[in-house]
Design a protein around this nucleic acid. Structure first.
Length: 483
RNA sequence: CGGAGCAUAGCGCAGCUUGGUAGCGCGCCUGCCUUGGGAGCAGGAGGUCGUGGGUUCAAAUCCCGCUGCUCCGACCA
């Protein structure tokens, strides 16, 4: 704690000085990514990719538990497919890259590089589904997608990114709507309990929903600069895509009907959220449940004691590993303990275990937690149980801290001037009444640059007049500047 | 896609105004020494100055194009 405010890692710009710069500094210093030679593309370096792998592991398990199976569809999508859903093509056209020739020969039909797979999956579902007995179809795909964004930022918005996209088909609207909500809840549970990021669940306004969807649900998370980041989305397509792609089935009543579809996705953008929700001026801070390395052991060995300290530390390593903890030891001689302390704090490792000659005499180790900086001395006999409790405490504390930040920076406003002033003088989200008219939503954006994030399912307060026009409000909406 | 800034060693930067031998810190390599919050000393390696053109006897430096990154705006499941 005493050292918490001192600046240890050079080359990381303090958050208060320039948050954007801080973000870039942290992902570079923590070695999560590198810029690739193609505009807007990044390399996920091992330390960054492992975070994504951990997300995959956790999510994939949850998808399977809810009855889904993985499959893989092609990267290339025939141009004609995009014409089959009007809103969809209009929404994506500006950012589609096209393959137009192979070798010297021009293709008869150009191929889009997928921005999302509704169309090609819809095409396949049309062939796979004949009867109500074939439903529901519950498939997920882990894939890369491409959207040629004008403005890119590592993890948050890149030309190519990694994600998962679930695509399901159902016999009834009710079933599909339940699926849409179920998967939003799956995301919520993952994001809140594993990533320790609190979110607001809600529905997107019509202008912000997915191109081609009937309605879109989203999770909105608050970054430490107060900006919003859409952590996941879940869409109910109704029969829009079923009609465009002729996905039909013969129902029990012998009537041919169109299916109801959903899709839901979470991308590597979530890593940006992880960094910006928990990171501080010392670098990354990872919640234990997602951290690739949960504990790092730093043996402290003056020359004369080096050998016995190392032997002892190695024993501790296997002990801790046996307890099921993801642990590493850094026994390099050419880095000082102090250097390593800073290094692993910067990389976000939740717990550091120090052990030196003085500890050995007392049969204890030193545990230092990343989230608070608190240091404690733990008898070796209690190491395993204490460590497991400590990781749980850190996980919980990081969520509580983030939740408190979210709450402190969420404001309710009753007039446009109050909304603008709040957004200009304080960071965060503002909840405001909205009549449902696009024009009023646009007006907010023009006044202060904030967009509607979502219409929360459980708003902290129900507002009864529209913040712009003063007519009766249909909804209470979160507005915020967004990534 | 519009406006602004930047691009020189792995990273951070100076040099450019006023053209003439490419520099500093950190990191890296070797050795000695050291280890409880980024130690010290000595020696050393590393750069067609983002890229393509132009001006000039001579370009990191001046001019033009292109590419990339950052910030602001527009756009954006």
């Amino acid at each position: 704690m005493a050292n918490q405010n001192k600046e240890f890692v050079k080359e990381i710009t303090p958050q208060s000085e320039d948050f954007s710069r801080w973000y870039i500094d942290v992902i570079r210093k923590a070695d999560l990514m590198d810029y690739a030679p193609v505009r807007g593309c990044i390399v996920f370096k091992p330390d960054g990719y492992e975070l994504w792998e951990a997300c995959q592991r956790e999510l994939d398990r949850r998808f399977k538990e809810t009855g889904h199976r993985n499959a893989y569809f092609p990267l290339f999508i025939p141009e004609s497919f995009f014409q089959k859903e009007k809103e969809h093509v209009e929404g994506f056209n500006p950012e589609l890259p096209w393959v137009t020739e192979v070798g010297d020969e021009k293709l008869e039909e150009r191929l889009a590089i997928r921005p999302t797979s509704e169309t090609i999956i819809g095409h396949m579902y049309a062939q796979w589904i004949q009867s109500y007995r074939d439903l529901p179809v519950l498939i997920n795909q882990w894939a890369n997608v491409v959207r040629w964004e004008k403005r890119t930022l590592p993890f948050l918005r890149t030309s190519e990114f990694l994600w998962q996209e679930g695509h399901t088909a159902h016999a009834t609207a009710k079933e599909a709507e339940e699926e849409q909500r179920r998967m939003l809840d799956v995301y919520t549970e993952f994001v809140e309990t594993v990533l320790a990021i609190p979110v607001y669940q809600g529905e997107k306004t019509p202008s912000e929903k997915f191109a081609g969807a009937v309605c879109t649900f989203s999770l909105e998370a608050m970054m430490k600069d107060g900006k919003a980041l859409q952590a996941a989305t879940s869409h109910y397509m109704g029969q829009n895509f079923a009609k465009g792609f002729e996905i039909t089935f013969l129902d029990r009543d012998n009537v041919l009907k169109h299916v109801y579809t959903t899709s839901w996705g979470l991308s590597t953008r979530i890593l940006g959220a992880l960094i910006m929700v928990h990171g501080d001026d010392r670098g990354l801070a990872l919640p234990p449940r997602i951290a690739p390395i949960q504990v790092v052991i730093v043996p402290i060995g003056p020359q004369k004691d080096r050998e016995r300290v190392l032997t002892h530390a190695t024993n501790l390593l296997s002990q801790v590993r046996q307890a099921g903890v993801r642990v590493n030891m850094d026994a390099r001689e050419d880095f000082s303990p102090g250097w390593k302390f800073n290094e692993y704090e910067m990389r976000g490792v939740p717990v550091r275990l120090e052990v030196g000659p003085r500890d050995m005499e007392k049969s204890q180790v030193v545990l230092v937690r990343r989230d608070t900086g608190d240091k404690e001395f733990v008898p070796e006999a209690q190491l395993q149980s204490r460590l497991s409790d400590l990781l749980d405490e850190i996980q919980k504390n990081m969520f509580v801290q983030a939740k408190q930040f979210q709450k402190e920076n969420s404001h309710v406003v009753h007039s446009l001037s109050e909304l603008v002033e709040t957004l200009n003088t304080k960071r965060g989200f503002v909840l405001a009444g909205w009549c449902g008219d696009d024009a009023c939503e646009t007006a907010v954006k023009q006044e202060c640059g904030a967009t509607s994030r979502n219409i929360p399912f459980n708003p902290p307060e129900h507002l009864d007049t529209c913040v712009v026009c003063g007519k009766p409000a249909q909804h209470s909406v979160w507005f915020a500047k967004a990534y």
